[in-house]
């Protein structure tokens, strides 16, 4: 098989995909990770885990009594 036959299809494929724009906003959101957002998620997870662990401890203590 001669792959050269597919070259024009490949070029056409690239041209077609060049029509869907990558917006400036999308590029900026990809390259500027929101650090505060990550910190907030982490803090939320810690709070949730502490709460769940406290409930578990209370329940286990209750069972022991």
């Amino acid at each position: 098989m001669n792959l050269s036959n597919l070259k024009s299809d490949w070029n056409q494929f690239k041209v077609m995909n060049g029509l869907s724009d990558i917006s400036e906003a999308e590029i900026l959101s990809a390259i500027e990770p929101q650090k505060s957002g990550t910190g907030k998620v982490l803090a939320d997870r810690i709070i949730q885990n502490v709460f769940a662990y406290s409930l578990l401890l209370l329940a286990l203590n209750g069972c022991a009594i």
């Binding site: 690239k14 041209v15 077609m16 995909n17 060049g18 029509l19 869907s20 724009d21 990558i22 400036e24």
Partner: peptide
């Protein structure tokens, strides 16, 4: 943006 065809493909 000048190479978006390549990236998207």
């Amino acid at each position: 943006q000048s190479n978006q065809g390549l990236i998207n493909s």
